[in-house]
Amino acid sequence: METAMPVYRTIVVGTDGSRSSLRAVERAAEVARDTAAVLVVACAYETADQRAVDRAVDRLGDDVGYQVVGASPAEETVRTAAEVALKAGAADVRTVAAEGSPVSVLRRVVRDHDADLLVVGNRGLNTLAGRVLGSVPGEAARKSRVDILIVHTTG
């Protein structure tokens, strides 16, 4: 017996601009395509100052740390992710770049858009620090009041 996939109306996906997070965007776009849902691509950022840049680079690595500090890079990140989502088949893609920690921003975007699915990548779940201290996907899953899809985006 086949079970029907839940029909989602609004899906939120978080991205930091990394290749792994864009894989989560692609998967969210596929679900949005298959359920005719609105897809909201969200990126959290910190106010740009050198300390914030250093913290982001320490946390995320050189390749993406600079992308999530300040509104302008975050806006570019969500624009790029929206293009990925459209190519993957999502018909209605919206973007949000908001200041704050990734989990608080994702929770706020889910609430503000009355979303019924949150999609995040699994980056950070497989590291010792992620298991001990928590990670964005882990914390989002624990605090989410809606369905959550954790996409396998890393080894």
Rank of each mutant, 00 (worst) to 15 (best):
M1P: 12
E2S: 13
R9D: 05
R9C: 01
V12C: 07
V12R: 00
V13Y: 01
G14V: 09
G17T: 11
S18R: 02
R19T: 10
R23T: 09
V25I: 10
E26Q: 14
R27C: 12
A32M: 07
A37W: 12
V38A: 13
L39T: 09
V40N: 06
V40T: 11
A42W: 00
C43N: 03
C43Q: 02
A48Y: 07
Q50C: 09
R55M: 13
R55S: 11
V57W: 07
L60F: 13
L60A: 08
D63A: 15
G70C: 04
T80A: 15
T80K: 08
A81V: 07
E83A: 15
K87F: 03
K87M: 06
A88P: 07
A90R: 00
A91I: 01
D92I: 04
D92N: 14
D92S: 10
T95A: 14
T95S: 12
E99T: 14
P102C: 06
S104M: 06
V105F: 07
L106E: 02
L106G: 03
V109M: 05
V110I: 12
D112E: 07
G121T: 11
N126Q: 12
N126L: 05
T127C: 02
G130A: 02
R131H: 06
L133G: 01
S135P: 05
G138I: 04
A140N: 04
A140T: 10
K143I: 03
S144W: 11
I150L: 05
